[in-house]
Amino acid sequence: MTQTNRPAFGTLLFFAIAFALSLYFTFAAVQGDFGLFRRAEVVAESQDLRMLLADVRADVARMENLTKRMSDDYLDLDLLDEQARKVLGMIRSDEIVIR
């Protein structure tokens, strides 16, 4: 009787399952909801939102400045004149309109 040395079926099954699990977890670490690609997307989106926040803050500062200049405590007559002429659609006699 001769015996051949071949691996047991259980050992082969164990390594196949371990290999499949390692492939799954590697794929999840790269492509999953919390993977490397998603992290890169979140970082890029974060940078876009930071730039948008800076733009919004600049707009708010500009509007606060205009509001302060039109308030009762501090009245900018040039700004008031500009806004009134813009709303009423009128010009002064010494101005030239270019379209």
Rank of each mutant, 00 (worst) to 15 (best):
M1Q: 11
T2G: 14
T2M: 13
T2S: 14
Q3E: 10
Q3D: 12
Q3K: 10
T4A: 07
N5P: 15
N5I: 01
R6E: 10
R6I: 01
P7Y: 04
P7L: 00
A8L: 13
G10Y: 08
G10N: 07
G10V: 01
G10A: 04
G10T: 13
L12R: 11
L13P: 15
F14S: 14
A16M: 03
A16Y: 07
A16T: 05
A16K: 10
I17V: 03
I17G: 15
F19H: 15
A20H: 07
A20T: 02
L21N: 12
L21C: 06
L23N: 09
L23R: 15
L23K: 12
L23T: 03
Y24N: 10
F25L: 05
F27W: 15
F27G: 10
F27I: 04
A28N: 10
A29Y: 13
V30H: 12
G32R: 06
F34E: 15
F34C: 05
F34N: 15
G35M: 02
L36G: 02
L36V: 00
R38M: 01
R38L: 02
R38S: 04
R39D: 10
E41C: 01
V42K: 09
S46T: 09
S46D: 13
S46A: 07
D48W: 05
D48R: 10
L49I: 02
L49Q: 15
R50D: 12
R50G: 07
R50S: 09
M51D: 14
M51K: 13
L52T: 06
L52V: 03
L53D: 15
L53F: 12
A54R: 12
A54Y: 06
A54F: 09
D55Y: 09
V56G: 11
V56P: 15
V56W: 08
R57T: 01
R57C: 01
R57G: 06
R57Y: 07
A58M: 05
D59K: 12
D59I: 02
D59A: 06
V60T: 06
A61M: 08
A61R: 13
A61G: 09
R62T: 04
M63K: 11
M63F: 08
E64T: 02
N65Y: 08
T67I: 02
T67D: 14
T67G: 10
K68M: 05
R69G: 00
R69F: 00
R69H: 04
R69N: 02
M70N: 06
M70K: 04
M70E: 07
S71C: 01
D73P: 05
L75D: 04
D76S: 02
D76F: 01
D76H: 03
L77D: 11
L77Y: 05
L77V: 02
L77G: 08
D78E: 14
D78L: 06
L79R: 10
L80I: 03
E82K: 10
E82G: 04
E82W: 02
A84T: 06
R85M: 01
R85K: 04
K86P: 00
V87C: 03
L88N: 08
L88K: 08
M90K: 05
I91C: 04
R92A: 00
R92V: 00
S93P: 07
D94N: 07
E95K: 01
I96Y: 08
V97K: 14
V97H: 12
I98P: 15
I98R: 12
I98H: 14
R99E: 02
R99Q: 02
